[in-house]
Simulated assay, not measured.
Amino acid sequence: MTALSVNLNKIAVLRNSRGGREPDVVTAGIACLDAGAHGLTVHPRPDARHIRADDVLALGGLCRSRGVEFNIEGNPFAPPRPGYPGLLPLCQSVRPAQVTLVPDGDGQLTSDHGFDFGADGHRLAPLIAALHATGARVSVFVDVGNPHVADAAALGADRVELYTGPYAEAFAAGAPQPALDAAAHTAVLAQAAGLQVNAGHDLSQANLAAFLAGVPAVREVSIGHALIGEALYAGLDATVRAYCTIIDTAHRT
């Protein structure tokens, strides 16, 4: 069964644009969980442009109280600075169920590529071990088509998250099959190495069903930007329920 983890970053973007507490990320998280989401995702960045360290602590408490997965995404190499203690110290404080490592620089608008294991592996391995010591499952962000995706297992990772941006673009252009086939092939390579497979980035109600039908045994999808955008029209509760229905239908068929 594929789990739906709702990324709350865009709620924090809206709050931060005005200051104050509204819209409240914890209230939004409760609404998502009440509607059937299996967990919550945040991606705190060092510049605190959306999710802040205090949000991470509050949402971690919510997820523990509800017995659901809390997934923290972040760049493990970004140094600490005022207001951002660093990904590892933050995870040591919150002890999330899953940590997703993403190689995004400070200036990136959004995550748009996976790790180069040849270049980054020697730094990733000890950080993955340290995150395991907190009790977290560790997933690493990978490009679809990466022939070395199995290297993530040698570094100690439990899962990989397929970067689905190119698939979403191909779907929108009306020619998704090559990107879908590439994602399926990468997933199979990862699974053969003992890794489980997550997916995320630009997945939406329009393209999710085809992705789940075409890529085997996806364990989790992390969806934020499209979901929050759709919720502006239909409401958060209805939108999360719609995603859950898509996932349920995909597994039944």
Rank of each mutant, 00 (worst) to 15 (best):
G156I: 01
A136E: 02
A31Q: 11
D47W: 08
D112W: 09
R252N: 12
Q92G: 10
E22T: 12
A130K: 03
N71R: 11
Y167C: 01
R21G: 12
R64M: 01
G174C: 09
R15A: 07
V25W: 07
P126H: 15
P216N: 11
D104K: 06
V42C: 14
E220I: 03
A35Y: 10
I51E: 07
G214W: 04
N198D: 11
L180S: 05
L227Q: 07
P147N: 11
G156K: 02
T245C: 07
F115R: 03
H185T: 09
D47I: 03
C32G: 04
P76W: 07
F77T: 09
A129K: 13
D24Y: 02
Q191C: 01
F115E: 04
A213N: 11
R219L: 00
A209R: 12
V142S: 01
R137L: 04
Q205C: 12
H113G: 09
G36F: 13
A154K: 14
L236Q: 05
L203S: 06
A153Q: 14
P96Q: 02
L109F: 11
I247T: 04
N198A: 01
H132Q: 08
V26S: 12
P76S: 13
F141S: 00
Y84K: 06
D248W: 08
R219D: 00
A3S: 08
D112H: 15
E230P: 00
V13P: 01
C32V: 07
N75C: 09
Q92P: 02
I223K: 02
A250W: 07
I128F: 01
S65W: 03
L227S: 05
A35T: 11
G105Y: 06
L124K: 01
G174M: 10
T134P: 13
N207F: 03
I30D: 12
D24R: 01
H251K: 05
A175F: 12
L8T: 04
V138P: 00
A35I: 08
V144T: 11
T134E: 03
E169G: 05
A175M: 14
Q108V: 06
D120A: 14
P80A: 15
A187D: 02
D106T: 10
A152T: 02
S93K: 15
T110V: 12
A48M: 13
V13A: 10
E69Q: 14
H251E: 12
G86S: 13
N16I: 05
D237P: 03
K10T: 08
V149S: 00
R252T: 14
G224P: 05
A129E: 15
G194L: 06
P76V: 14
T27N: 07
L227G: 04
T249G: 08
A31L: 09
V13H: 12
C63M: 03
A35V: 11
A187Q: 02
L189N: 01
G67R: 10
H251M: 14
V138T: 00
P85S: 15
E69L: 09
D112P: 00
G19Y: 07
A231S: 14
L189M: 14
G165N: 13
A130G: 02
G174A: 08
D104L: 11
G174V: 10
A209Q: 07
G165P: 10
C32N: 04
Y84N: 04
A170F: 07
L40D: 05
D47E: 14
C63N: 07
